[in-house]
């Protein structure tokens, strides 16, 4: 059984984002594996335990620096990595096509994990694009997976915290949410071991993808300014509560 985990190398959530050329960010900030993808890797490795012949392959479309992300994925348990090397940003449609092409070259997936969304673009759409391209079931916000022969019994967490159970036929695409597991952070021996694991590097251009009839492109980026002037609500608890009610009632008009 071959389990692919699609990971994205994204700017650290604590990084200060600066805009360059009005349409892209300064990429020299610290990058990390997208936090949800850590849950995806952990989920894939947990399934490997129950399945003797399973292999976990971490797959990433990114710049050369994304090799660090793949190394972390392997330190967390992936058996090997594939980097589709590019020097550009790709939208979700493009990304899904590239990920599919790379997986197909590698024999195709029996199961695909991704994070439910990436923290830079916040789209959560790539997994559905993969589902459509492969005509495989795709489910997001997955918080529980149990494999049962050729199907996965899963639980998805939806708005307001509602949980829904589905049976999904394999192969399928699953988007990991935080509740799926607690990622185990790599120890020093894990990191050393991961250095010996192989990474294949493909060039995006070598995938020979057909141009897509639709695309999205960021044409302008501007940093958001913080412009609030804090005012103190003074007094005892009772007085503070009164002032909060005044704001709710007269300024926000919600009561």
């Amino acid at each position: 059984m071959k389990i692919f985990v699609c990971v994205k190398h994204v700017p650290d959530s604590a990084a200060v984002i600066t805009v360059k050329d009005d349409c892209r960010i300064d990429n020299r900030v610290t990058h990390i594996i997208n936090p949800y993808d850590e849950h995806a890797i952990t989920g894939a490795c947990q399934i490997r335990k129950t399945c003797s012949s399973a292999e976990v392959v971490a797959l990433c479309l990114g710049r050369d620096t994304a090799l660090d992300g793949l190394r972390s994925a392997m330190a967390m348990g992936a058996d090997r990595g594939i980097l589709i090397r590019t020097d550009q940003d790709h939208d979700a449609m493009d990304t899904a096509a590239a990920l599919k092409a790379a997986m197909d070259r590698d024999g195709g997936p029996d199961l695909v994990f991704t994070g439910k969304e990436a923290i830079d673009t916040n789209g959560g759409e790539t997994l559905f694009r993969l589902g459509a391209l492969y005509r495989m079931p795709a489910m997001s916000n997955v918080v529980s997976v149990v494999l049962d022969r050729n199907q996965a019994d899963i639980i998805c967490e939806e708005e307001k915290g509602t949980r829904t159970e589905f049976e999904v036929r394999l192969p399928c695409i699953l988007g990991a949410a935080k509740g799926l597991n607690q990622p185990r952070y790599p120890t020093m021996p894990d990191i050393i071991k991961s250095r010996k694991k192989p990474i294949d590097i493909l060039d995006y251009a070598d995938l020979d993808l057909d141009p897509l009839p639709a695309a999205t492109r960021v044409v302008r980026l501007t940093a958001c300014e913080e412009d609030r002037n804090p005012a103190q609500l003074k007094g005892d608890a009772d007085q503070v509560a009164d002032q909060i009610i005044q704001v709710l009632k007269h300024q926000a008009r919600v009561i």
Binding site: P11, S13, D120, N122, A214, A215, T216, R217, V218, V219
Partner: peptide, 21 residues
């Protein structure tokens, strides 16, 4: 074109789109 955000609300973005739908 649309106006949206990128990098978790740290930047505002103008995104251009193409395609029939």
């Amino acid at each position: 074109r649309v106006e949206t955000t990128r990098y978790s609300g740290k930047t505002r973005a103008i995104v251009e789109f193409s395609g029939d739908r």
